[in-house]
Design a protein around this nucleic acid. Structure first.
Lengths: 132, 132
DNA sequence: CTTATAATGACTATGAAAATCATGAACAGG
DNA sequence: CCTGTTCATGATTTTCATAGTCATTATAAG
């Protein structure tokens, strides 16, 4: 059986460190392009595989925001804002509400977690809209 | 210009009434199959088109739950439960919280609405898991 | 009836993601 | 050292959801 330490896991770790270095919730393809621009020789297939396996192991979170999944290196539950103007997704500095899960469990469901996304215009896009 | 009353809008209305007749948040393809089984001669392309136009007009809501969009005839904001066991989506009898939008607006965003989805096991799947 | 417009269906195209397959590196056991 | 096995990787193909195109049909307005 192959044994490797955390430093030498190859391409998968390159994907993870690239993702950890950003907070803009990139898509698989955006990560792929960023890695290539940094001279990393990697294929898109490997990026997809790495992200899927990282997500399965709970090391990254997946945000299914159409048309493509976005990835988040922060796995602690938190909320997101999706700007309808620039289509960007940002983290919100707003506390997670575990009591919501409790409330839904009162309805007979077993709740693992919840995802809360706010949709609207970010400060920059509000400004731009005012000008246009 | 074509003027038609609400009864005679053709296929698009057939899609809408089929959707209104159910509360299981079907996908476009599920609606297509249901309509065909009822003898309705309609193409998948038309179902997609109808749903898109209905959604643009705000007559139906779209729930982007991978791998396919699901549609909801109820456009009043409400919350959903996504069962990780059977993959079904159900409405929750839980009041919408507009104060969440207010709170996020306090952070500088302009909030149009929010989507809140709970993930876990529905009562039936909890039961099944206990048996298996 | 005739013309314009809109709806529809069949088909093709797209884009994200997964699956497949061959290759080569790393490793274990002899 | 060999050798066989496992596993990561890249290239490619496939799948699936959805969108676009285009020709045809249906319908409304004149």
């Amino acid at each position: 059986m192959k044994i490797m330490n955390r430093q030498e896991r190859g391409k998968r770790d390159r994907v993870l460190s690239e993702l950890m270095g950003r907070k803009d919730h990139p898509t698989a393809e955006e990560l792929y392009l960023a890695l290539r621009e940094k001279g990393e020789e990697i294929s898109l297939a490997t990026v997809y595989r790495a992200l899927r396996s990282l997500a399965e192991e709970g090391l990254v979170a997946t945000l299914p925001i159409a048309p493509a999944d976005r990835f988040d290196p922060v796995t602690e539950p938190h909320y997101h804002f999706h700007c309808l103007g620039c289509n960007r997704v940002s983290d919100l500095d707003f506390p997670y509400k575990p009591e919501l899960d409790r409330a839904i469990e009162g309805l007979g469901f077993s709740v693992h977690h919840h995802t809360l996304v706010f949709h609207g215009l970010c400060p920059a896009c509000q400004e731009r809209g005012r000008h246009a």
